[in-house]
């Protein structure tokens, strides 16, 4: 067996024989994926429940909009009482051609929404009754891929974060542990090149990251979450690999600067955690304040996240590769050069 292969194998065994590492690599990020996935599964598709009394074309049409959930009540008095108590946002009654609509003004936005829907339905029915063709028509459709669901945002975010954590910790802890236990020194006494040691660690890191990605995407694609890969998802692969390398370089820097595993894992957390919260890992970055979006541009996680989402979710073309790939490559080169500079074979 070559030195390269056996070193990679030794690192891999050290990795998969450690239960805590396995947990933080696979189970922990999956917990976030599952929790967020279930939490937001119905977000945006949630219907507003409105009290309904009586029967007629308007009530039927309202039910057919698919936006409102109608809750049947026997009398309007009873429905209005529920509205007054805050249990329902509004109630509507149809008796022949007479319509009664009562709403709670406490939630203006919701009241406005329901009222808009009711007015729209009534106007449409009135127009249909005149037998005139409508003069204005609107072509309506959403801009995102038709498969868009929260899981499409959550999966790339959690995946980037999980891979980033594992890459940083894996590189940093191997380096610190091997230096502390003088394994590095022992390797240096063998006719093995430093690049052999380095590349075997890179290969293990990439391998573990790919397994993580497959598991996260596989879980996301389960029917209960419903993740779908759009046409250009293959373009996410280079962004993913460069992201792994960028975080590997950061891990090497952390490992070069820290002497103990405790210090290294603390430092790795300080580097990765703020990045995770500010880079749109757990919620879409476009919902955060402008300053946060600006700050997050300096983080490799933001670009990894954005780049992967562009192809995995938004179906953009290859031109979207440019920015994330350039930024991540710059990180690999600059951070890698600094860590090579400060690297030491042994504690002095």
């Amino acid at each position: 067996m070559t030195a390269f292969r056996s070193l990679a194998l030794a690192m891999l065994k050290g990795f998969y024989r450690d239960r805590a590492t396995l947990f933080f690599t696979f189970v922990f990020p999956l917990m976030f994926l599952v929790v967020f996935g279930l939490l937001f599964r119905d977000a945006g598709a949630e219907k507003i429940t409105v009290g309904a009394v009586g029967e007629g074309p308007v009530i039927t049409a309202l039910r057919e909009t698919g936006v409102l959930e109608l809750e049947r009540h026997d009398s309007m008095d009873e429905a209005v009482r529920l509205v007054r108590d805050g249990d329902l946002p509004a109630a509507i009654e149809q008796r022949g051609e007479a319509l009664t609509f009562r709403f709670a003004a406490s939630d203006q936005t919701q009241a406005g929404t329901i009222r808009g829907i009711v007015d729209g339905v009534v106007n449409q029915l009135n127009l249909a009754d005149t037998n005139q063709a409508p003069r204005y028509t609107v072509d309506t459709s959403n801009v995102e891929d038709s498969s868009l669901k929260p899981i499409q945002y959550i999966t790339p975010g959690v995946m980037s974060w999980g891979v980033a954590v594992t890459s940083v910790f894996g590189a940093a802890l191997t380096l610190v542990n091997w230096r502390k236990k003088q394994v590095l020194r022992r390797i240096r006494l063998a006719p093995v090149r430093a690049t052999t040691v380095l590349t075997s660690r890179v290969v293990v890191t990439i391998g573990v990251a790919m397994v993580q990605a497959l598991i996260f995407l596989g879980i996301g694609a389960l029917p209960v979450f419903g993740l779908q890969l759009v046409g250009t998802w293959v373009l996410a692969v280079p962004v993913f690999l460069l992201g792994v390398l960028a975080f590997f370089a950061i891990g090497m820097l952390v490992g070069a600067l820290c002497r103990t595993e405790e210090a290294a894992s603390g430092a790795a957390n300080i580097v990765v955690l703020p990045m995770a919260f500010l880079s749109g890992t757990f919620f879409p970055i476009d919902q955060s304040p402008a300053w946060m979006q600006a700050v997050s541009n300096v983080f490799p996680l933001r670009h990894m996240n954005d780049g992967i989402m562009d192809f995995l979710v938004r179906g953009r073309d290859a031109s979207a590769l440019l920015v994330p790939c350039l930024v991540l490559t710059a990180f690999v080169v600059v951070v890698g050069a600094i860590s090579a500079k400060v690297f030491q074979w042994e504690d002095s």
């Binding site: 070559t2 292969r5 236990k181």
Partner: peptide
């Protein structure tokens, strides 16, 4: 210090070091 690879058995340690020398 006993410089060993983490989590490897005695045989695996020896095989790994052996491979460093081909």
């Amino acid at each position: 210090a006993s410089s060993f690879f983490e989590k490897l058995t005695a045989r695996e340690q020896l095989e790994t070091f052996a491979s460093l020398y081909g």
